[in-house]
């Protein structure tokens, strides 16, 4: 409102100024034409007319000045009224603003309380959901742990069974090879014993026969060997 009033005042002053200026210009043009006219008709009329026109101009200017002064006064008045209105408006605005602020504060407070309660509700819901999820997770972990233990038990059982089987197999193999070794050793020892028996027999016979067999028998053995060699055609 005050702004519009101000614009109106300024427009009024501007229009007045334009009017004055146009009037001045008109007068000037009129004077000029008159001067020209007078120049054609004669110089005497020019001075009276000039004085008249100057008087008119002076009066116009004075009126214009008065108008301007009135306009200025009006403008000042309007300005003051404007300022007053502005102040009034400011006061109204301020009070309305305060009211609005108060209302807004109230509204905000209520909204905040509402939001807060909703937030609390939301948190509680989250908490509940969290608890549920936690419970579900614990259950899942428990089940997983149980299944892992079950699998572990199963695998351990399988492993122990296979280890036992392998151990038994390797022990049996060891036993078998040990038995075989014993058998081999036994066979070798028996062979050694047999060899020893034969060598003892040979030594005994060598000692005994050398003393007991007469020369004749010994020579007979040589003849027997030679006869065999002859039969076999060993000596060609």
């Amino acid at each position: 409102m005050p702004k519009t009033l101000l614009f109106e005042i300024i427009a009024l002053i501007a229009s007045l100024a334009v009017a004055i200026i146009s009037l001045a210009l008109y007068l000037g043009e009129y004077y000029k034409r008159t001067k020209e006219k007078n120049a054609k008709s004669g110089f005497q009329t020019i001075d009276a007319t000039e004085a008249k026109s100057l008087n008119v101009l002076y009066r116009a200017i004075k009126k214009a000045q008065a108008i301007i002064g009135n306009a200025e006064l009006a403008g000042i008045k309007i300005g003051a009224e404007n300022r007053l209105a502005e102040k009034k408006l400011e006061g109204t605005f301020e009070s309305q603003l305060n009211v609005a602020r108060t209302d807004l504060e109230k509204e905000m407070s209520s909204q905040m309380n509402k939001t807060y309660s909703e937030y609390i509700k939301f948190l509680e819901t989250l908490k509940e959901q969290n608890n549920q999820i936690q419970a579900i997770n614990q259950e899942a972990i428990k089940q997983r742990a149980n299944s892992i233990f079950d699998k572990f038990e199963q695998n351990l059982g399988t492993f122990l069974t296979s280890t036992e089987q392998k151990s038994v197999a390797s022990i049996e193999l060891e036993l078998r090879s040990a038995r075989q070794l014993i058998e081999t050793y036994k066979t070798e020892q028996i062979a050694i014993i047999d060899e020893n028996i034969i060598s003892i027999l040979e030594r005994t016979l060598a000692l005994v026969l050398a003393k007991k067999i007469p020369l004749k028998d010994q020579v007979d053995l040589v003849y027997e060997a030679l006869s065999k060699a002859k039969v076999e055609k060993f000596i060609a």
Partner: peptide
Amino acid sequence: IAGCALSFRGIYKDYS
């Protein structure tokens, strides 16, 4: 021990 062994032309035979 007793008896003899023979060797003739590189061939050995034991009759002992």
